[in-house]
Structures are given as C-alpha cells and as structure tokens.
Simulated scan of single mutants.
Amino acid sequence: MANTPQSKKRARQSETRYAINKARRSRIRTYLRKVEEAIASGDQTAAAEALKNAQPELARGITKGVLHKNTVARKMSRLSSRVKALNA
C-alpha cells in the first residue's frame, strides 16, 4: 500500500492512465475488427475504407505508448496485403 504522498499520487495517476490506455486499446481493436469483418465479407472497397479509417488510430496508439511501432507496422502491412489480395 502507498504510504508517502508521492506514492499515493503515483497510484492515482496509474489508475487514470490504465483506464485511458484500456479505452484506447479497445478502440483500436474495434477498428481492427471492422477491417477483419470487411475482409471476411469479400468486399474490397469496404475493406480498403475500413483499413484507411484504422490506420490513424493505430498510429495514435504508437504515439500514446499503447502499442509498439513494429507491432503496428506488422499489423498494417499484413492487413493491407490481405485487402490488396481481395482484388485478385
């Protein structure tokens, strides 16, 4: 348990950041799910649009420290290649 005023404040800040990061992760997952659903439906234009909407949210996850940049780069690369393959 936190005893000093500083450690109490850090505990409060930690709870706040946890809630914010959890919401941000959830939002990112929602965007990714929309892309996955569009790919599963086979509609290339809808999948491309969903990916276009998901990319800024993923990039925001990097800058806010929720996701690692290589993780996001890998996800974007794999999704874009899957969307591109729908056309073929």
Rank of each mutant, 00 (worst) to 15 (best):
G61V: 04
N53P: 01
A54K: 00
A46Q: 09
G65I: 14
S41T: 14
L51W: 06
R74M: 05
H68C: 03
L79N: 01
I39F: 06
G61Q: 03
T71V: 11
L51Y: 11
A54G: 15
T71H: 13
V66A: 09
A73G: 10
N70V: 07
V72N: 02
A38Q: 03
H68T: 02
R74Q: 07
M76H: 02
S41C: 01
Q55W: 02
H68E: 15
V66Y: 00
M76T: 09
N70C: 03
R74V: 10
E36Y: 09
A50V: 15
M76K: 10
A54R: 04
K52Y: 10
Q44S: 13
A38W: 04
R78S: 15
E37M: 15
G42Q: 09
L67S: 11
G65H: 12
L79I: 05
A54Y: 14
V66N: 02
A46R: 07
L79V: 01
S77R: 08
N53L: 15
A50F: 05
I62R: 04
K69I: 05
E49M: 08
G65N: 13
Q55A: 08
R78K: 11
S80W: 10
N53A: 14
Q44E: 09
A47R: 10
T63L: 10
K52A: 12
A73T: 11
T71M: 03
E36N: 12
R78Q: 15
K52W: 14
E49W: 02
Q44L: 07
D43A: 13
A38N: 13
R74A: 12
Q44N: 13
K69D: 11
T71I: 09
E36I: 01
N53V: 02
A40S: 13
P56W: 14
N70D: 11
V35T: 07
S77N: 03
E57A: 00
A48R: 04
T63N: 11
H68K: 07
R60T: 08
S80M: 07
K52P: 00
E49I: 04
R60M: 08
T71A: 13
L58G: 01
G42P: 06
G61P: 01
Q44V: 06
D43M: 04
N53R: 11
L58E: 03
A48D: 15
K69L: 09
E49F: 12
S41G: 12
M76E: 00
P56R: 03
H68W: 12
K64P: 08
L79G: 00
V35H: 02
K52G: 07
S77L: 13
I62A: 10
R78P: 01
A40N: 06
V35C: 14
A47N: 01
